[in-house]
Design a protein around this nucleic acid. Structure first.
Lengths: 199, 199, 199, 199
DNA sequence: TATGAATGAGGATTCATTCAT
DNA sequence: CATGAATGAATCCTCATTCAT
């Protein structure tokens, strides 16, 4: 593994563990097993390194969502969404430090917002991709005809997002079983709807 | 207004604008119109000041949720949830810097997690409160009998939470009308459910 | 007890315990049970307060030495010196923080050296007073005729001084019995002399 | 000379001149001709730097005392002690700021007392070493058989210690001749003893 | 390319002192 | 005389970044 990759992985690990605010170049170098100076042979600045690592976040989720586009009309909608939801909770949980750091450091965000927009990056991409899938399924008649695909996507991913956030806040890890149960209950409610049924 | 309040409000303003990581005591003092030393006459440390201000976050939402408990069976469920959702988006949006800073600064969170738990604080309280309300409505037959109140609460608040997050990420403000529309669509989808209806 | 005295005693206690360097006006006020502002109603500055308290140090020793002048020719020289030595160890031990602070804070010392000289103050006064006593006893033939009174005074008081210093350094307290034994051995050696005796 | 040494020497010089309490990292850096930050590349903290420099104090005296152990039975006891006494006054004088700072800053002392003990460091080591030498000479019959070696060591070194202290207190330097005279008189008195001789 | 010592700007915090009440 | 909030200068220390080797 080349040094650039080692540095990036070290940075990812440290930011995950401590958050960006308390991540120092010294610590990254220590974990990467190189000198602080070496960081600057591969990245222009600490911020540059952060952005590099940031781009590797949420890749499982985005992969699952991209795969979904091909799956419209196949399997069950419920089954397809379940895979996405599981990936979402897992990735959001793993990347929560990154996600929150972007907001916490307003100037960093401001400096790069245009870049994000230009490259069509950011966590909101997930919602858009899921929306697209649901639109297709709606055309196929496999989801309720009067539902807004965007709202449905926001409900599902928002729920996963906040769930991951709260696990981090509470300092909890979740077993696979617990996670499956959360996703199951969430999908149950999402499919069924809150509306009381007439007798 | 006494100086302690002025300092707290200055801190709130600066953290909202810049995030905790880039908030300096110097800047807080400047905005509060006092010396840096004065901060320490009223707060033990910058961290102490942050926690003080943090405790004032999400109060509108929590107020709306608490009020909700009295409203079970009154008005429409939909109408009640609408008020909550609007408060949620607004408060989450306002407090996103605080919420994310808590996660970004892992050591700060670790240091105070016990305290949060002891005082039953934290953003997850909102979900629990909404869950309680929905449970009551379920008993009253005003929400679908097979729905999980917790899952429903997580869907609604999670969606609002992530929506607020994404507004911050994109650097957008939302008009009242846009916000109402977001809430409306979200509630539509949540009430209706994804399930395709048989012809 | 009036406030000025209470402040002075608080300062003495705190300096004794923590040394001047780590003594704050806040701590003095806390111990004195008054506000920090009150300190400045009774003393011009922290330095002024320190000097005030400093002047009260070593008073038992100086008292014992002054008394000694009257005792020349009375009792035994050994007995007279024993009282002085005991007072010296006790007072040096009690005042070691003060004594050392004067040296540690060079600028303070420089600022007040003239004042000390003008008022004939300082720990060296003890040696001069003891020298005077020994000179008288020498005239009376009660100490070895070829001894230098100043050297003898320096030996005895220097030994007590360093002994007190080392107790402080090692963080030890000494029982009265231990102290008596130290003084006894010291006087034994001082009276007898190192010189090997011919058979 | 490497920077670490330059920093250490600068610190030594500044502490000697101003005492630890009034020694700032800024001033040390200025004298060392480097930035304040550099101090922290070589020492963990100001305290760490102080301890490093402290360990280099009293080395001439300790060297002279160690050499003494080999000299038992050689030359004259008086001559041997003279060398030690001269080294003692010189070293105590040079290091008085350090010695006193250790006492003035009680918490520093408390924090490191165990370390001092573990490494068998501290000014009291000098007395123990001199005591050992005198014990040997006593066995050789070269010092008075009824004298306590420890008491004799305390008398001599205590006198030198306090003499150095008082020179600092009075702001005086001593010529070599004056110093020799002080040592000579002190040894005269110590060898002869105070005891009046019967006619 | 890899290093790591050196930097220096900037941060949080302390503390003696002042002054209006 | 007593207060204690307000001050602001000064302090120790951190850390991203540079650069000569």
């Amino acid at each position: 593994m080349d040094l650039k990759t080692r540095i990036a992985e070290a940075a990812e690990q440290v930011i995950r563990a401590n958050g960006l605010a308390k991540t120092t170049t010294k610590e990254i170098a220590r974990i990467a097993g190189c000198s602080e100076g070496s960081l600057y042979n591969h990245f222009k600045s600490k911020e540059d390194l952060f952005l590099y690592v940031l781009r590797g976040q949420l890749t499982n989720l985005m992969g699952a969502l991209t795969a979904l586009r091909e799956l419209a009309g196949q399997g069950t909608v419920r089954g397809n969404l379940e895979k996405v939801a599981l990936a979402a909770v897992a990735d959001y949980y793993q990347s929560m430090s990154f996600i929150c750091s972007v907001i916490s450091e307003r100037d960093l965000l401001n400096r790069h917002r245009e870049g994000f927009a230009a490259r069509n990056e950011g966590p909101h991409r997930a919602n858009e991709t899921l929306e697209a899938y649901l639109s297709e399924e709606k055309l196929l008649g496999r989801v309720h005809e009067s539902i807004s695909p965007r709202a449905a996507a926001d409900l599902l991913l928002g729920s996963c997002f906040q769930h991951a956030f709260q696990l981090r806040f509470l300092g909890r890890e979740e077993s696979e079983e617990q996670r499956s149960r959360f996703v199951k209950h969430t999908l149950d409610a999402l499919f069924e709807g809150l509306q009381a049924r007439e007798a």
